[in-house]
Amino acid sequence: MTSFSDPTAVSGYAERTARIVPGLRDLHRMAGVLLAERAPSQARILVLGAGGGLELKAFAEMQPGWQFDGVDPSAEMLELARTILGPMASHVRLHEGYIDSAPKGPFDGATCLLTLHFLPPAERLKTLQQMHLRLKPGAPLVVAHHSYPSEDPGRDRWLSRNAAFAATSGVPVRQAEGSIAAIKERLPVLSPVQDVDLLREAGFTDIDLFYCAFTFKGWVAHRA
């Protein structure tokens, strides 16, 4: 798995992520569309796991009137975000840390993309609850990450498909295949049913699946 403090890994983050996450740029655009369903033209948006700046840049391009608070535990990834954003960095305040480092809001919407699969269930629930507290009533939350039943005998088949996709995108075959064991061993991945249950337990309603790409799933939910 990637170290988010390794300079080489950080510098190649954008290219590498686009190779391994199907439709990454479209995922960002879809998230922007879902946020805009309820967020006003001058919205304030919370982006958790903002290191790298890819979704921040996509959202800022789509909605020039929005202001963002981006949170990430990696100082190196936040620096990359500043570089990626360029002149659009004036729309963003970056915070080093986890959800507790995020401003209290209230926010008009929030995203957490390709991040929650790093968190074990208890920490994941706490993170979702803290995001819920920071949102205005009715505001949308968009999440996307690895999600599959860990006991499903078809799990390895889908992880192999992820690896094959990465290989077709230019990732060396040995590296792509090595990701299968790394994901199984290091990521506390939940099933889609468990993910939806956690969103509900955190207080979210109107939960809809909008993105499904091999082992990656994405949902939009709303603060009650």
Rank of each mutant, 00 (worst) to 15 (best):
H132I: 06
L187S: 11
L54D: 12
S90D: 08
A181H: 15
L35Q: 04
S160H: 06
R174Y: 04
N162Q: 15
A163W: 05
V92H: 00
D208Y: 12
A167P: 09
D6N: 08
G23K: 10
E177Y: 09
F107V: 11
L80W: 07
E76P: 13
R174D: 01
S3H: 09
P121F: 12
T17D: 01
G170R: 00
E15H: 14
F4I: 04
H146T: 13
S160Y: 10
V173T: 09
A176S: 11
R93W: 07
D69V: 03
L135Q: 01
L125D: 11
R155G: 07
P106V: 07
L159W: 12
A75H: 09
A182D: 06
M62W: 11
F165L: 03
I183G: 10
G138H: 03
G154T: 14
S3W: 12
P172I: 14
D152E: 13
S191E: 13
T83H: 15
M30W: 06
V92D: 05
L35W: 09
V71H: 07
F210Y: 01
L116P: 08
L34Q: 03
A31D: 08
K136L: 07
E177I: 05
G32A: 12
S160P: 10
L119E: 14
M1D: 01
F165W: 08
F59T: 02
V220P: 02
D108T: 03
E151T: 14
H145C: 15
A213L: 12
G49N: 07
A144G: 15
R29E: 08
F68Y: 03
L116N: 00
T2W: 12
L48K: 11
R82G: 04
